[in-house]
């Protein structure tokens, strides 16, 4: 595993960590020997409950926190040593946006751009304007940031991450605090950016968000990496699909299904779910109809990431204690 990580570091991995560990001064182990590998061009979902060490990991990747042990390689260069060369190519949104309330949105971006030594001052105004347009804040650019709603602040934070052409975007909970419309817009923006060939590293505790946007995912819990792979792999490997039948005649249906080898039957309202047998499901449906069961819906539910998560951790998706 370690050897494989090292080999993939140079060519395809945009982020790669080996034994990345952070122990805080109190002795609390926030991140425990993390081996993470994010392929170039992927939309990588970094998943875990609150307090599982996601943010500490992101801060170590970006050179804000010094790892206790192990190391991280970002865009082929070691962090935090090469921060000066690597970070201009990385856009980041860390634990929500942070703005100067007394400055306008535009001035906030000018400020952040001025902090980047590689940013060309001659194109600064144009790039700021473009970034504001990209996140849909062009009209509100001259408003004071303190008057922004949380959603607008989040967008401005994203705009700051898009001030320069980036190779990697690290987005920590980018849809936090947004209304459903805003969430959808951010997701489509993420897809669009990924379409431009930018690798997106997206942390979230919202499972369906990862499922909708990401190609790859890793799951963290209590500071440890539980699993990583493509989203398709995870859903497939984690749990087989469940058979679901909706019918008003639940008792009769349950009897027939049990007879035909469906196990683990659960009846909830007018829906029965269970693990399907290896046999053809069409036969199963025919048998139900033959027995006079009125079937409203019949199908296999794909396992969600949440199912996978619960299966992997053996516990609910709660705050780690």
């Amino acid at each position: 595993m370690a050897g494989q990580t090292a080999a993939s570091t140079t060519d395809s991995a945009v982020i790669s960590t080996r034994g990345l560990t952070k122990r805080y001064r109190g002795g609390q182990l926030a991140v425990d020997a993390l081996d993470l590998s994010v392929p170039r061009g992927s939309v990588f979902g970094f998943l875990g409950p609150n307090g599982s060490g996601k943010t500490t990991t992101i801060r170590m990747l970006l050179g804000l926190i010094e790892p206790t042990e192990g190391g991280a390689v970002l865009l082929g260069e070691p962090m935090p040593r090469a921060a000066r060369h690597v970070l201009p190519r990385v856009g980041a949104l860390i634990e929500g946006p942070a703005l100067y309330g007394f400055l306008s949105g535009r001035d906030n971006l000018l400020r952040y751009d001025a902090a980047d030594p590689t940013a060309d001052p001659a194109t600064r105004t144009a790039r700021v304007g473009h970034a504001l347009e990209r996140v849909g804040l062009a009209a509100a650019g001259s408003k004071k940031a303190r008057a922004y709603s949380l959603g607008m602040k989040q967008r401005l934070g994203l705009a700051a991450a898009l001030l320069q052409p980036r190779e990697l975007l690290v987005l920590d909970e980018p849809t936090n605090g947004l209304d459903p419309q805003g969430m959808r817009e951010i997701r489509s923006l993420v897809r669009e950016l990924a379409g431009d060939g930018i690798t997106v590293f997206l942390s979230s505790h919202l499972l369906d968000e990862i499922e909708q946007v990401c190609t790859h995912t890793a799951v963290m819990n209590r500071g440890r990496l539980i699993t990583q792979g493509t989203v398709a792999e995870m859903s497939a490997a984690g749990a087989r699909g469940k058979l679901a039948v909706t019918t008003p005649d639940t008792a009769e249906a349950a009897r027939v299904l049990k007879e035909r080898g469906v196990t683990d039957l659960v009846t909830e309202g007018d829906e029965i779910t269970g693990d399907p047998p290896a046999a053809d499901l069409a036969e199963l449906n025919a048998a139900l109809v033959e027995a006079g069961v009125r079937v409203r819906a019949f199908g296999v539910k794909r396992a969600s990431l949440e199912d996978v998560f619960v299966q992997l951790t053996g516990e609910g998706f709660d705050v780690a204690g």
């Binding site: 201009p88 942070a98 980047d116």
Partner: peptide
């Protein structure tokens, strides 16, 4: 305390320079 420090540092301003 405003949180802007982390964004300046990942810009990256460089700690000595900042």
């Amino acid at each position: 305390s405003a949180g802007t420090l982390r964004y300046l540092l990942v810009a990256p301003s460089g700690r000595t320079r900042l």
